[in-house]
Design a protein around this nucleic acid. Structure first.
Length: 651
RNA sequence: GCUGGCGUAGCUCAGUCGGCAGAGCAGCUGAUUUGUAAUCAGCAGGUCAAGGGUUCGAUUCCCUUCGCCAGCUCCA
């Protein structure tokens, strides 16, 4: 019996029964056979030495492909587990998948791994790799599997649960062996350990079994694996570059903000340079909110606990709220409890409710830069990106049903315009739909809102994924993510429909027939949090902000003291075109002053000396170009700087 | 919150196998007045995160607390 295999180029070939992926690769070419690590047969990845199960398409997976790397990392995880079981008597192992750029494996050795352990494990892995042990696939019955792993509680649980992704289920378990090491695994794997070219263990940390914080905490070791030492070095270099962009580090170096320990974790103070940056960002926010038809409101930082009961926050969100404080205590000791706000929405609802509303008032779009406080767990606080106190550019739109579609489209347009103005143009959105179990509101309204969100995404041509059932209980939403300069994904904006709060606060409007109707509410945050947004900006630009955001837009360097007066004149001239200018009057050398301005990432550095005074000119050095220009007429320099610092224009 | 690592000058880091605390940068003072990425010299700067314990003696060893870092969990 023979079967027909179709190759990716569309050609078809006949192969005898029992042909393996390796045979197919060899028949195409010896170089391909050498590079092959697995094959994809009718969409399913198979080991190279496995007999193909029948007709169909075959694609040879080479080591350097994305799938190939994934397989190499998966095999690396096995080798790591093998090393750990070799080195630690009685070690238990759980699961060890490949992940982006690497792999991990979870273990229980009765204690945490020390840094020395990690070195020893890596050394042992190198030995195993050197021995080039073949990975051998095997199948066993569930009973045999339970026998093999009788000393391994986590493996036993996986087999008992019949998890297909881990190689268990349907009464059969899949095993991979190399030497005496055997693991439960769906595969596929590299032909042998020797095909792992570059591997390095990075760190270990606690991780809950099954990701459940109520279950045992295991010790997870993370590693990375690549096809060459060069790729590995490049990856480590990339990690270092990401570290150099760390907004906490740059925030200190550029004197933007700090987190004094005297204040408390997750609570930032903004220094003057950061203050200008933040003011620029907030001014922009106010302007664009006006352009998109929002009105400004303000609300206090505290409210009675009763309000948070009405809003439901004390039912669903209490853990993230700061504890209550009792005020206006009377002689009998009773008083009124207040809570610091974790969100702005209830206040905006109260503003809506402050008067009888007509259908003609809608949509009503209320916006606030509102500081909120959330009791984030101590382990999750992370600079500006995850703070306990932060400022939301929060808006709440109240509209009629027939306005939902247009409003959501407008909100998405708003969000994308704003993100583009800050230099982000790589967007990905998540559309979260109604959860299976618990939800409020009318099904029809859910469908309307969800379809409207989808239509808006389609119309805006944003790539998006549908997160089925991932919506909140009170409404569907869009989260917009951006990719930064080094490809990291950040969640920024959110547009969230809410069917719950209008119910809870019983807000209404009178329609044209004088019937009371309930408005639909749309929450939206474009920056998300001003703090977080600026944190992401710092990392995206590595501190070298676009000129309109730069705290100092031009530094003027007098060559000698006798040029200070002319430097001041120049500064005044540039301030006239709206530039934020600084004159470096220190007694440092020109080289030192320049270096200071450049390391502070000032967009324009101006040097003035005798020649410039004589010709009313300046020397100019614009960030990003290596060459300086000399003798630029002052008028011209001012005009150019005016252009450089222009805010993003929208017609 | 959990697991691990780490807290030494404003910053980056040495160091102390338990015996008077070190450098570079930044700061201050003086000299230098410089044409495109660090001029020279001097000075000052520390309860070695905080509290407790062991010890003749603790920055060093032990405990507790606080904070930071990484990961997990969380981010209705």
């Amino acid at each position: 019996m023979a079967f027909t295999i179709e190759l990716p180029d569309g050609s078809q070939r006949e192969y005898p029964d029992g042909v393996t992926g390796f045979d197919v690769a060899s028949s195409i070419g010896s170089r391909l056979a050498k590079a092959a690590v697995a094959v994809r047969h009718n969409g399913e990845l198979l080991d190279l030495d496995r007999a193909l199960p029948g007709d169909g398409s075959v694609e040879v997976i080479t080591a350097d492909s994305e799938d190939g790397l994934f397989i190499a990392r998966h095999s690396s995880a096995h080798v790591m587990a093998q090393a750990v079981l070799d080195l630690f008597e009685g070690a238990h192992f759980a699961i060890g998948p490949p992940i982006t750029d690497g792999f991990y494996y979870d273990f229980d050795i009765g204690r945490p791994f020390t840094p020395e352990d990690i070195v020893a494990i890596e050394d042992r892995m190198v030995e195993i790799i050197k021995e080039d042990q073949p990975f051998v696939r095997d199948e066993a019955t569930t009973e045999e599997g339970l026998e093999i792993f009788k000393d391994q509680p986590f493996k036993t649980e996986i087999i008992t649960d019949g998890e297909a992704s881990q190689g268990a289920g349907d009464g059969v378990v899949t095993l991979y062996r190399n030497l005496d090491f055997v693991d439960l695994c769906r595969g596929p794997h590299l032909p042998g350990t020797g095909r792992i070219k570059a591997v390095k263990l990075l760190r270990s940390a606690g991780a809950y079994w099954r990701g459940d914080e109520n279950r045992q905490q295991l010790q997870r070791i993370y590693g990375t694996a690549w096809n060459s030492k060069e790729d590995l070095a490049e990856y480590l270099e990339r990690l270092e570059q990401a570290e150099a962009r760390d907004h906490r580090k740059l925030g200190r170096e550029l004197d933007l903000f700090s987190f004094p320990t005297d204040v408390g974790p997750g609570l930032a103070v903004w220094h003057p340079k950061g203050g200008i940056l933040r003011k620029t960002v907030e001014d922009y926010s106010r302007t664009i909110h006006e352009e998109f038809g929002f009105e400004f409101v303000f609300s206090p930082h505290l409210a009675k606990s009763d309000l948070w009961h009405t809003s439901g926050h004390l039912d669903f969100y209490a853990e993230s709220m700061y504890p209550g404080m009792v005020m206006d205590t009377t002689s009998d000791g009773s008083g009124t409890e207040y809570r610091v706000k974790p969100m702005n929405c209830p206040f905006h609802v109260l503003i809506y409710r402050s008067q009888a509303r007509s259908y003609r008032d809608l949509p009503l779009r209320l916006s606030e830069l509102g500081a909120v406080y959330r009791n984030e767990l101590s382990g999750v606080v992370h600079g500006l990106l995850r703070a306990r106190g932060f400022t939301q550019d929060d808006s709440h739109t109240f509209c009629r049903r027939d306005q939902v579609g247009a409003e959501l489209a407008m909100h998405l347009d708003f969000v994308l315009t704003l993100l583009r103005d800050f230099g982000f143009d790589d967007f990905e959105a998540d559309l979260s739909t109604r959860p299976e179990a618990k939800w409020v509101g009318e099904e029809e309204l859910w469908d309307l809102a969800t379809d409207s969100l989808r239509d808006a995404l389609e119309a805006a041509d944003v790539t998006y994924e549908v997160a089925e059932g991932e919506g909140a209980f009170y409404g569907p939403k869009i989260d917009v993510h951006v990719r930064d300069a080094i490809g990291r994904r950040w969640q920024m904006s959110t547009i969230q429909v809410d069917f719950s709060l209008p119910e809870r606060f019983e807000i209404e409007y009178n329609d044209a027939e004088n019937h009371r109707q309930r408005p639909v509410m749309i929450h939206s945050a474009k920056f998300g949090s001003v703090e977080r947004f600026i944190g992401v900006l710092v990392e995206h630009y590595a501190g070298a902000f676009p000129a309109w955001l730069a705290p100092v837009q031009a530094t003027i360097v007098p060559v000698a003291d006798r040029h200070i007066e002319y430097a001041e004149t120049t500064a005044a001239k540039l301030e006239l075109v709206g530039a934020r200018v600084e004159v470096d009057e220190s007694s440092a050398t020109v080289g030192e002053k320049l270096r200071r301005a450049i390391t502070q990432k000032v967009p324009v550095v101006i040097v003035v000396g005798d020649n410039d005074i004589e010709h009313t000119s300046v020397g100019m050095r614009i960030r990003g170009s290596d060459d300086e220009e000399r003798g630029v007429p002052l008028e011209l320099a001012a005009e150019r700087i005016r252009d450089i610092i222009a805010s993003p224009g929208r017609s």
